[in-house]
């Protein structure tokens, strides 16, 4: 794998929503390079025919019945909010648009 340059780290930082200084970018870039070099060893194990394991005890279809349970009080919901207004969470302006 190619070494991470400053732009790569900047891209990762943006995807991760982490504001980094140039110095931090360089510092993390070096460290990530070292770590990536160490972990890239997983590729040594040929595993084409090996299925992935996600959990210790493989179970399926764990569901809950469609039954209403009590919600939090609105006071509790908003208790941690850095800013609230009109019973809603107040957030800074949203510059770009992205909807699902």
């Amino acid at each position: 794998m190619p070494a991470l340059d400053r732009d790569d780290v900047a891209h990762l930082a943006r995807l991760s929503r982490l504001q980094l200084t140039d110095a931090e970018r360089d510092h993390y870039g070096e460290q990530l390079d070292v770590i990536l070099a160490a972990v890239a060893r997983v590729a040594e194990v040929a595993a084409d025919d090996v299925p992935p394991t996600t959990h210790a005890v493989p179970v399926v279809n764990v569901t809950r019945p469609d039954v209403v349970v009590p919600c939090l009080s609105r006071e509790d919901v908003l208790s941690g909010a850095p800013a609230a207004e009109d019973d809603r969470f107040r957030v800074p302006r949203i510059l770009d648009e992205e909807e699902q």
Binding site: L4, V9, L12, A13, R14, L15, S16, R17, L18, Q19, L20, Y28, Q31, L32, I35, L36, V91, P92, R93, I94, L95, D96
Partner: peptide, 27 residues
């Protein structure tokens, strides 16, 4: 804007090891 506030919050709120692992995992 909201994106910057998130990025500044996370930069201030997380320590270096957490940032390292978040970026590693994102990668």
């Amino acid at each position: 804007g909201v994106e910057q506030v998130m990025a500044i919050t996370r930069a201030e709120g997380f320590g270096p090891e957490v940032k390292r692992r978040i970026m590693l995992g994102t990668y």
